[in-house]
Design a protein around this nucleic acid. Structure first.
Length: 453
RNA sequence: GUGGUUGUAGUUCAGUUGGUUAGAACGCCGGAUUGUGGUUCCGGAGGUCGUGGGUUCAAAUCCCAUCAUCCACCCCA
């Protein structure tokens, strides 16, 4: 056996049948995005490392794919740096570009760069692959597509509500039952402040995030382990044991964090949002989930995460509000909010639910069997007519054995096969065979077109 | 980055206490059927047993290393 060719770890090829299904997902999502007034943009696969670094936290920086500089880059590196063998320091000399890690940061860069040409609030969608040097596992790849929608340049919570509506509409169209979990970074910050550990918000939220996974005791243990004081952990307990309706939950939280400015603000935001949502018709379940943290550290307000109710897989959509992402690029006080749909996980969910609609699987509708040169000449004008009428049609390119041509049609799941040999040509007709039922009928060119179109 | 799993035909997998020529199913190619596929029957091609080393008279099988793979953790879509 010759050495088998392969592709890098965590990447995938997509066969025609997979592409048809993926396009169905992308098109469904795009349709909904456009319905809400969003416009498409694209940005390059690679960005300057300076725009990428430091936006995703320490972990995120490690997961960036870096692109080696061109030319004889090593000769410019001072010898003492080479001797030091410090990869992090050396990287800055060897690489100044990286593959994008998500679509939000490149979008923020885009907004700042073209601020004078953009009409705000700017509603954009973007569907492109992103790359992460993660270790691949189930539902996790190193190259995957994100479908982002963001509104930038508007503080209104109406945007958050519209995003929930978009999520609802997309998953309704795809036939996936979902739960949208909502939390607010301001509430999390308020909690951290209220229990006297304001600067430990990240550690606290990471621990809380695991609540339904590892349980209350282990969460407490982890926080103590991270150096959170026993007193602070005790104060936190009422919040971890929250129950009741959203309104009740918010009231309970308020008793703990209402005294902090940021916490009060967060609670007010959530109350407004849920009040809006009350008046909107939704299929999906929307719930306040304090254990939702989300790793990306640029979020500052509402955060979202969507899970499939019927299939166990990570979140299939997530996002939130970021008040000052553009500030890093020199454009302060512009708030944005957006969510990202994970196409691959949605794909996996649809496969498991067997929920791809038949009619979305477009293919060739009719194949002309090729009997030879004379017959080709007889078929080609009709083939052209079919295509003009919008019928996906093809002719087998060589006069191979009948069996081979039929097998080809069968394998490609072509619905109709058209046969035209001596008999048909003499009668100025065509034999039209329905590949599913096996039925055949003799028709003229016009009838053929009418049946197929 | 940490822990584990599995590497045998195109694919999914068998392969006994180490023992002659490494098997099956599906797929592929050809024929039965030179104008009819998906069903049936007959035939055929296809394997450095992941790679390198070691133990042994003898290794797909035991040992070591290495690479790849998948899964879990961390984190995330």
């Amino acid at each position: 056996m010759a050495q088998k060719p392969s592709i890098p770890k965590g990447t995938r090829d997509f066969s025609p049948s997979e592409m048809v299904r993926r396009n169905y997902i992308f098109n469904t999502i795009k349709d909904v995005f456009r319905l809400y007034g969003f416009q498409p943009i694209e940005t390059p696969a690679m960005e300057n490392l300076s725009t990428l670094m430091g936006k995703y936290g320490e972990e995120g920086d490690k997961l960036l794919f870096k692109i080696l500089n061109s030319g004889d880059f090593i000769s410019k590196v001072p010898q003492d740096m080479l001797d030091e063998k410090n990869s992090n320091k050396l990287t800055t000399k060897l690489s100044e570009k990286g593959l994008r890690y998500d679509l939000t940061v490149p979008f923020a860069r885009y907004v700042v760069q073209y601020r004078n040409d953009i009409a705000f609030p700017f509603k954009r969608y973007q569907i492109q692959p992103v790359w992460r040097a993660d270790r691949p596992q189930k539902g996790r790849y190193r190259e995957f597509y994100q479908c982002d929608v963001d509104v930038i340049g508007s503080n209104s919570l109406l945007n958050e509500v519209e995003l929930v509506q978009i999520i609802d509409e997309v998953f309704q169209r795809l036939g996936i039952n979902t739960t949208v979990k909502i939390n607010n970074r301001k509430i999390l910050a308020g909690i951290a402040e209220a229990i006297g550990e304001a600067d430990r918000m990240v550690d606290i939220t990471v621990a809380i995030d695991k609540l339904d996974k590892i349980g209350l005791e282990k969460v407490n243990a982890e926080m103590l382990d991270k150096g959170i004081s026993q007193e602070a952990v005790d104060k936190l307990q009422p919040i971890l044991k929250l129950e009741g309706s959203t309104v009740e939950k918010l009231a309970q939280i308020e008793t703990v964090i209402g005294g902090t400015e940021i916490g009060a603000k967060g609670i007010a935001e959530m109350r407004t949002m849920f009040a809006y949502l009350e008046n909107v018709e939704l299929n999906t379940t929307v719930e306040l989930d304090l254990t939702l943290a989300r790793g990306l550290n640029y979020y500052t307000g509402a955060i979202f995460e969507v899970k499939s109710n019927d299939v166990q897989i990570g979140s299939i959509c997530g996002g939130g509000r970021y008040d000052d992402l553009t500030g890093i690029f020199g454009m302060p006080d512009v708030s944005g909010v957006g969510v990202s749909f994970g196409a691959e996980r949605i794909y996996d969910v649809l496969v498991q639910l067997d929920a791809f609609p038949e009619e979305s699987l477009e293919t060739t509708k009719a194949l002309f069997v090729n009997f030879g040169e004379k017959e080709e000449a007889y078929c080609l004008p009709v083939l052209a007519q079919l295509r003009k009428n919008g019928v996906n049609a093809e002719i087998f390119p060589e006069s191979a054995k009948m069996k081979k041509q039929m097998t080809y049609a069968n394998r490609k799941e072509i619905a109709y096969v058209i046969l035209a040999g001596d008999n048909e040509m003499a009668a100025q007709k065509f034999t039209l065979k329905n590949m599913e039922t096996g039925e055949q009928q003799l028709v003229d060119a016009q009838e053929l077109i009418n049946i197929l179109k």
